[in-house]
Design a protein around this nucleic acid. Structure first.
Lengths: 355, 355
DNA sequence: GTGCGCATTGCAATCGATTGCATAGAGTTT
DNA sequence: AAACTCTATGCAATCGATTGCAATGCGCAC
């Protein structure tokens, strides 16, 4: 090997500056081109040199600056996941369903080598979403829930922004959605409750949101098929917030003392409803059956265990990410997807409680 | 299927390429220097020109490329929020407490003009966290939970990485933590349960995690002060997972048929414990009092409403972000912070249930 | 008419990594 | 020994925005 005579340059970046490729090149006595190729494992570089440079990089904790790489290559491996919230109600982020969705998206993105930029934004300023892409901070956007902003989403899609939305598929929709079959979900609940002999139902949820509206449609259609109606005093418009759910349920009980079943458009609302029923000395499920929506993890561990419509959260994350990556690869925007939706019957809606 | 005709505005950068400053400069008949200054509102630029350029930018949805800006300026306004998970148990992301924390961090970061990169990483590969910073993808890191990795965290701090951890403050700790006063939390629970006349307690939680260990220490210290012990068969090591909690609780009931109180180290575990108690026909709180930890949103709406130790989640987000930003501004790493911790007594632990 | 000051604007270098092309040098062939 | 290969490496342009400094042009004073 060489003689120890040559004075090794001292750590180049010990001025507190972040180490960069030029420093490593100086240390290795080569050019940055060589370092770049060595670190990327190029065959052009002499295996010994390559190994030496890689060792050096490890030793100095050098990692290629991905901002510079991103600029040069023009590719972005960051996806923005947006959780819109309504300023008025501060609604949305509290829902455990969202939590599951975010976890699932995190997994799907990581698996495919993407990073996740998570952002809550005011639903009234959805256009800031476009800026995320225009400014190159994210390659594409996954939006959780379309809320009341169908038209804005259509406009964004028209601009060609890579966008996928978790939510309902609507008529005249130019953007791509992935979601459960809400109409079917609502119908399943109606059929189940009818089969349990329930007749005086109430509904909790905000039909101003497309997903909820579809669940409601399926639910009332199912009831109608069984000869049961759902007059106005048997439903209550309420945001996805536990406390609102509790208050709304109390009001519904007072307005319908004889009610025997509740369909809540989310598990969170269903849980709040159970609390309200308890406050009014109603037994669940003996007096009143309760069915939620989403099948969040806690639903199975609630007291009593909650019947609910399962949204396949894991598949949802995968489907959302795959749809978006397709758009990013220039393939035609995939058609909106409807994921499997099924009813999970637990104790909260059974006429004869499990032993 | 249909006509792929896209209604695109006629722009000079119409080849599908993203609009950039040079395009805008050409449109405005000026140089990119002028555009740059105009968009940043520089006083150097003629007000009319400035206005004209800004209008043009808005019209073409032009947003400055923040990758290029980031490279040039060398500043990063992205903070990585890391949720470590244990490969074996896939533990962590399911806990609703985390969800609250992430929301709180999102708010605090947004308020200060930072973006949040959310990442779950294998707790055994914490060193990939360092790469996030070395590669310039994030300016700093907020880690939720120190888990079993005190030494690795110390090593990262020694390297000078901007890092703040939500968790317990430990002896010989070189990194900055923000957390609740876990010892006090545990003691409060002990005192409360003793005051309720409970004597045969059980504990649910994994004392391999520093936070849980502190809660346990406070709890047993409080019990000891009241002359009550907690022998080994009255505690169970269990990860923060509902199903594990349920099983562990069933085992504890079988081993201690006469138990009259449960302290669970998280609300999730407490809820699972209530379910298990119910399976074994124990009434909560009449037969067995249950206290959780965290005060997640659902705790108040559980059945029965759950007594718990509140972790001030909103302050936590603010404190974590502020501590990190201080480090990033070159100020000395702030001392670890202990946030206020208090007991919220609800129905699940009262000897006489509320009317 | 010449010179000076001021308001605007443009030029060119820079941030850090990548890559097409050029080149040094060792080895081989004729 | 000249010509030619082939391998390993370096040079310099490039990605898109920013900014110190230079330059332009106009108004105004002498």
């Amino acid at each position: 090997m060489g003689k120890p005579g040559k004075p090794r340059p001292v750590t180049p970046a010990d001025s507190g500056r972040r180490m960069q490729m030029a420093d490593l090149a100086r240390l290795a006595g080569v050019s940055t081109s060589t370092v770049s190729r060595a670190l990327s494992g190029s065959e052009l570089i002499n295996p010994e040199t390559r190994e030496r440079i890689q060792t050096l990089a490890r030793k100095f904790n050098y990692t290629i600056n991905s901002v510079a790489t991103g600029l040069r290559s023009g590719v972005q491996r960051t996806i923005a996941v947006i959780v819109p919230f309504e300023k008025a109600s501060r609604q949305s982020f509290a829902d455990p369903f969202l939590h599951g969705m975010i976890g699932s998206l995190a997994d799907a993105l990581t698996e495919r080598g993407y990073e996740m930029l998570l952002s809550r934004i005011d639903a009234d300023q959805l256009d800031t979403v476009a800026a995320l892409i225009d400014s190159g901070r994210a390659a594409g956007v996954i939006l959780i829930g379309q809320w009341r902003h169908h038209d804005q989403l259509n406009a964004m899609a028209a601009r060609g922004l890579p966008l996928v939305v978790w939510g309902a598929h609507l008529p005249h929709q130019d953007y791509c959605t992935v979601g459960g079959d809400n109409v079917r979900g609502g119908r399943l609940v109606a059929e189940h409750l009818l089969a349990q002999g329930r007749r005086r139902m109430v509904f909790l949820g905000d039909c101003g949101l497309p997903e909820v509206a579809q669940r409601y449609r399926g639910f009332t259609a199912g009831l109608r098929a069984g000869g049961v109606g759902l007059p106005a005093q048997q439903r209550k418009t309420v945001p996805f917030l536990a406390e609102s759910g509790r208050k709304a349920m109390l009001a519904l009980i007072d307005a319908n003392p004889a009610l025997d079943a509740v369909f809540a458009s989310s598990d969170l609302l269903a849980m709040a409803a159970v609390g309200a029923l308890r406050e009014r000395q109603r037994q669940v499920p003996a007096d009143v059956a309760v069915v939620g929506y989403d099948d969040v993890e806690l639903a199975a561990h609630f007291n009593p265990p909650l019947s609910t419509v399962r949204q396949p959260i894991h598949e949802a994350g995968t489907a959302l990410v795959d749809a978006l990556l397709m758009m990013l690869n220039g393939k035609p925007a995939p058609a909106s997807a409807l994921l499997e939706t099924r009813l999970i019957v637990r104790e909260s809606s059974q006429s004869t409680p499990a032993p």
